[in-house]
């Protein structure tokens, strides 16, 4: 489903060059729940960003469903992200000026879908994460766990084949963290969604199908 070949990512400034990812080769199979672990600054989020086409690798290829994604023009890349990928971020990244329902339907704004259909699908997505009673609330009126559930609803509304989650439980207490993990596992088991999750939490990673460890930008396991 996702294939990374010889991925290298270098950050350059005028004085310094930092190798964030070094020769990463990784395949994620359809329906797999993969977790990525490693110490802070080892390149976990960079790897996830490269997989999610949010960042371009300095070298190497990213293939999703056999299609080479790196180097695609902006318009195609945007469509690709919109249709194939869903993101869940540690700090939720909701638009605070919009109510929950509008936040959730955001990915569908960039598809040819009518307003009423968007509303219907957004309500369905919110029902899946148990937040249909908070549709008109603004993100600032919700708890951390509720915000992350809104973020998950936004990630799944477009029915993407892959969800990329960057420390989705990182800002939550263990109870809330477990709730979020349950939702992700449910999506993986019952709907067959492929999930790649960056985490610091060993317990969370144990619940996934496979674990990849990074150290100083290199894959160690």
């Amino acid at each position: 489903m996702i294939t990374l070949q010889n991925i290298e990512k270098v950050y350059r400034t005028s004085t310094i060059e930092t190798l964030a990812l070094n020769n990463i080769n990784l395949s994620v199979e359809k329906g797999e729940f993969l977790s990525i672990m490693g110490p802070s600054g080892c390149g976990k989020s960079t790897l996830l960003n490269v997989m999610g086409l949010l960042d371009e690798p300095s070298k190497g290829d990213v293939k999703i469903d056999g299609k080479r994604a790196s180097g695609l023009p902006d318009k195609e890349l945007s469509r690709f992200r919109n249709e194939k990928l869903g993101f869940v971020f540690q700090s939720y990244h909701l638009i605070n000026d919009l109510p929950v329902l509008d936040n959730v339907e955001l990915p569908l704004l960039y598809r040819k879908i009518s307003g009423s259909e968007r509303r219907k699908l957004a309500i369905e997505a919110l029902e899946k994460v148990g937040l249909s009673n908070r549709m008109k609330h603004y993100p600032s009126q919700l708890s951390g766990g509720q915000r992350q559930r809104v973020a998950i609803a936004r990630a799944i509304i477009g029915k993407p084949a892959i969800i990329l989650a960057d420390e989705p439980t990182g800002n939550l207490d263990s109870t809330m963290g477990n709730e979020i993990m349950d939702i992700l596992m449910n999506l993986n088991k019952n709907e067959g969604t492929t999930i790649v999750m960056v985490t610091h939490d060993e317990n969370m990673s144990k619940k996934t199908d496979r674990l990849v460890r990074l150290f100083d930008g290199s894959q160690v396991m």
Partner: peptide, 10 residues
């Protein structure tokens, strides 16, 4: 956020 979820630059 908008770009991540599919908005192109245009």
């Amino acid at each position: 956020i908008r770009k991540a979820f599919g908005a192109s630059s245009k």
